[in-house]
Design a protein around this nucleic acid. Structure first.
Lengths: 111, 111
DNA sequence: TTGACATGTGACCATTCGGTCACCTATTCT
DNA sequence: AGAATAGGTGACCGAATGGTCACATGTCAA
């Protein structure tokens, strides 16, 4: 499985996005601390953190028996660079014009 | 289900990302044209296009019995703005420093 | 050194998801 | 009108995913 696939799959789950949000509010939290915030058992939180770590969205550091979790925004930046670069290199402007045109012609007919 | 959840779930599948890539190469393709490029039955492609359309990543326009599919980069831009804004507003620099520090201290110990 | 605490593993179950198919409707062309 | 073409629906199945638990390891502190 490719790296970006891991990142996209990790971001696909709302609980994992909530974990990233929690780490953004207060970075370096332990598993037990994150569990207390999320209405889920420790095991569920642990699985999610594992996927986030595999995707490189979370970096960890051990401190004794604790494991501290830190946000890593780099993969998100890389995704952005991939998609937005593709869509903007000579195409995004035309597409945005097209979208506006579609919405003007057929206001509510596109689902 | 929230809008951004639809977008993240739509982006989570490699076939759907490939569809976006195909539409980027040539925009406005029909279902049948996309099917021919993707080693999958028409029904599988149709399901994926449906999810992309529900997420707002693809916009469609009918022309007779054909349905033309167009890329819409706006949701991807919105995701970028959400995450990167959060991570950069006073935090990203510190996090990147931290990451560099972690990788210097413990080169291969974080999985 | 004993007990409490923080994290980890493997199995397990219910639900979701990817993909296919039989069958159907709508449009075009002759 | 009738045949061919483009797209759509609902059911179905195997695989992957989310979540929980019993149990185990490693660490701190009295």
């Amino acid at each position: 499985m490719s790296d970006d696939d891991l990142v996209f799959k990790a971001l696909a789950d709302p609980t994992r996005r909530a974990l990233l949000d929690r780490l953004f509010v207060r970075d370096g939290q332990t598993l037990t601390e994150l569990e207390a915030e999320l209405a889920m058992t420790r095991f569920g939180v642990m699985k999610h953190l594992r996927l986030l770590e595999d995707a490189g969205l979370v970096v960890t550091r051990r401190r004794g028996r604790e494991k501290l979790h830190f946000l890593n925004p780099v993969p998100i930046r890389l995704i952005h660079d991939r998609w937005i670069d593709k869509y903007t290199e000579g195409h995004a402007a035309a597409l945005l014009d097209l979208k506006a045109e579609l919405e003007r012609d057929e206001p509510e007919e596109n689902r």
